[in-house]
């Protein structure tokens, strides 16, 4: 029989309402309150071996100590699953459920499941760290919540993999993954086309991006003749031994190299490690990616004040938006710290 631990607050433990919200963390044997409903639903497949209880205010007064106590209790009982809540639309209770569920999984490898109203505050905070089933917004929907959480909990306890959120009826964690499907792509494409033609409802399998927030343009350079200009590229131009091990695709790193080194372009010569374009022309002449010769000619003519001592490089193919934004932010910070006034970016 599978062994399940359960976390609830002071209200569901029968201690009391808001006036008892400072009830301290405690551990009880067996099922308490809604745990009994879960035990009924589990039947012979699982039992509730332990119930962790904490008052809503008490938990948030010292979350670290309470989490430590919860982890210690779970480490001792070694359950196959932790169920937290359901907490419905509750704020403090939901967040405590999320924190304890995430800690059980991350610190002890125990799968965890919470029940939450899809718009509850804890959903966005903990959705990537634990598994959630949607519930109604109040304890009036306890029966339905237990009925949908129990089978999902048993699957997690048995170590079964998740199915797509829609099939599990889960609140989405938010990642995408390929699954095998019975319906051929061509059939889906033509069915969707005919539905769209007839004005019938259809569901795109990938939704369009929400519009990128426009970036307010930076102020223009007042006097180019006094300005120091930096060169930045996503074209993967690095010394040929790639000392910083910048990835040739899906980059997580950037580096800067002295402009003098690029001008010399020998021992080491510069090459592109970018895996998204044919680099033969850039390898033959790196100025085709980082236009140093042209910028130097313009400096000699007094068009600009100076050239920043370093150029900056990363690889922009298959690079995730998350890493791309971080890389851009880090480069920008460095450029500002170094007193650069404007930047020329080249990209493939």
């Amino acid at each position: 029989m599978l062994r399940v631990a359960h976390y609830i607050n002071q209200f569901f433990a029968g201690i009391g309402g808001e006036d008892k919200a400072d009830a301290p963390f405690e551990v009880r044997e067996g099922a308490v309150g809604p745990g009994r409903a879960f035990a009924m639903e589990f039947g012979d497949d699982a039992e509730i071996v332990q119930t962790l209880v904490c008052g809503d205010n008490a938990f948030h007064a010292d979350p670290e100590a309470n989490l430590e106590a919860a982890v210690a209790a779970l480490a001792e009982s070694k359950p196959d699953l932790l169920i937290a809540g359901p907490a419905f639309n509750a704020g403090r209770y939901g967040l405590a459920c999320g924190a304890i569920a995430a800690a059980a999984t991350e610190k002890l490898g125990i799968p965890a499941l919470i029940g939450l109203y899809p718009e509850a505050p804890a959903v966005d905070v903990y959705r990537v760290r634990t598994v959630m089933m949607p519930t109604g917004d109040s304890a009036g929907s306890m029966k339905d919540a237990v009925a949908s959480m129990a089978p999902m909990g048993l699957r997690l306890a048995r170590g079964e993999p998740l199915s797509p959120a829609e099939e599990d009826g889960r609140i989405p964690i938010g990642y995408r993954k390929a699954v095998a499907t019975e319906v051929p792509v061509a059939h889906r494409a033509v069915e969707m086309l005919l539905a769209k033609l007839k004005g019938e409802p259809f569901e795109s399998e990938i939704s369009l991006p929400e519009g990128a927030e426009p970036v307010p343009p930076a102020p223009a350079v007042d006097d180019l003749g006094e300005a120091t200009i930096a060169l930045v590229t996503e074209g993967g131009l690095v010394p040929e031994d790639n000392p910083d091990r910048i990835e040739s695709s899906s980059a997580t790193k950037w580096a800067r190299y002295p402009i003098d080194m690029l001008r010399a372009n020998t021992d080491p010569a510069f090459k592109s490690i970018h895996a998204g374009y044919d680099s033969q022309w850039v390898d033959a002449d790196p100025n085709r990616m980082v236009p140093l010769d042209a910028l130097e000619a313009l400096r000699a003519e007094g068009v600009i004040g100076g050239i920043h001592d370093y150029f900056y490089a990363t690889t922009g193919t298959g690079t995730t938006v998350t890493h791309g934004e971080r890389i851009g932010g880090e480069i920008a910070k460095q450029l500002i710290a170094d007193g650069v006034q404007a930047v020329i970016v080249t990209s493939t």
């Binding site: 938010g174 769209k196 990938i206 369009l208 998350t322």
Partner: peptide, 30 residues
């Protein structure tokens, strides 16, 4: 009226936005 068949590039953990490029008209993607 169009439908588009597209691969995804959502990153190794699957959390990134999956399309390389899109247009607002591409509202029916397989």
């Amino acid at each position: 009226t169009t439908t588009v068949v597209s691969s995804e590039a959502a990153g190794t953990d699957g959390f990134d936005y999956p399309l390389f490029y899109s247009v607002p008209e591409a509202d029916a993607i397989v």
